[in-house]
């Protein structure tokens, strides 16, 4: 397969600058709470931008995405606690297992459309939760897994470095994930999945295989989601079925949609804004999901195209205003 359109030089420069700024940031941000916030931004950014690949670019109504995150998390937790596998290998296993699970869900949805894809993927997520709860001898059931072993770096203590180590691991994951996703959407495959989304009949008549592209897309969107899930387990050192819940799903989904679908970078920006907002109101307890839910509904009512659509609309309005002033 040839390269497709590839990533432009300006974008590469932007990526490098962004990565360098984020790599230097801990020198300014010394406080471990703010570093924790940034780590959460990175994790959610990986998950949301990966979701954008399947939901936004490919137009697959995949609502089982958080289950892939949960699979990564529980793979890591079970592999390290039960099997005693090295945390670094367990991290990779989280990505691999999530990709396999995504390939498994793509089988039934290959022939489905619209709402049925939503239902099957959603039901898949529910199934994973039920399996985890029912196998409570291994998974801890509703109580979850606790005291999961974390990463070990020789000669360095990850617990006493004000989260510096975790910050860099999460940043590396985010950089790899973003480069991977951008390469994917700018490749021939990325063009093919957009063609399928926009005009399925025409695309298939031009020889694009819908089943193969969907399978690759789903697996591709799962790899870093699973890795992020495994990292989440190593970072918090526990795993619970909360990650499958409606609250987190709604939060992540709103990152994808508020960021504007089919942008990758939009999801990252939305992850930054929403994670910080969500942490700012963490003291509200059960009011927090209510506030976020109301906010999502209000944004959807006002700007069904997401924040990205709102910014684009504002830019258009500004340009119109500028033109009107230019022509007397």
């Amino acid at each position: 397969m040839s390269m497709g359109v590839g990533i432009g030089r300006r974008e590469i420069t932007g990526m490098v600058v962004g990565a360098v700024v984020l790599a230097l940031l801990p020198m300014v941000v010394q406080d471990s709470y703010y570093r924790h916030l940034l780590i959460m931004v990175f994790i959610y950014g990986i998950v949301a931008s990966s979701w954008d690949l399947s939901l936004g670019y490919a137009g697959i109504f995949n609502f089982g995405h958080m289950a892939l995150f949960g699979i990564g998390l529980y793979t890591y937790g079970l592999a390290t606690t039960l099997l005693g596998i090295s945390p670094w290998i367990a991290l990779l296993a989280g990505g691999v297992l999530a990709a396999l699970a995504a390939a498994l869900i793509s089988l039934p949805i290959l022939r489905l459309k619209g709402i049925y894809v939503v239902l099957v993927t959603f039901a898949f997520g529910q199934l994973v939760v039920q399996l985890i709860i029912s196998q409570s001898d291994y998974t801890g059931g509703n109580q979850g897994l606790v005291r999961i072993p974390s990463f070990h770096i020789p000669g360095h203590n990850l617990m006493r470095d004000h989260k510096l180590g975790f910050y860099y691991i999460a940043l590396i994951l985010l950089c790899c994930s973003t480069v991977f996703l951008r390469l994917m959407v700018r490749s021939r495959l990325g063009l093919a999945i957009r063609a399928l989304r926009d005009n399925e009949e025409y695309a298939t008549s031009r020889g694009i295989s819908i089943s193969r592209q969907r399978l690759i897309t789903m697996a591709g969107s799962a790899v870093f989601t699973g890795l992020a899930g495994a990292f989440y387990g190593a970072y918090f050192r526990n795993a619970s079925t909360d990650v499958f819940g409606a609250s987190l799903t709604t939060l992540l989904l709103s990152m994808v949609l508020l960021g504007g679908i089919s942008t990758i970078y939009g999801s990252l920006l939305a992850a930054l804004l929403l994670t910080i907002f969500s942490e700012m109101i963490a003291g509200l307890g059960a009011w927090r999901p209510i506030v976020i839910g109301v906010l999502i509904i209000l944004v959807m009512l006002a700007y069904p195209g997401g924040l990205y659509g709102a910014i684009a609309a504002a830019a258009r309005a500004l340009r119109r205003l500028g033109r009107r002033q230019a022509s007397p």
């Binding site: 609502f63 939503v118 709604t250 999502i296």
Partner: peptide, 14 residues
């Protein structure tokens, strides 16, 4: 799907 999911979260926590 999104608005009803958000409503589900609102009612559950309510």
């Amino acid at each position: 799907v999104i608005t009803t999911l958000a409503a589900a979260s609102i009612f559950e926590n309510g």
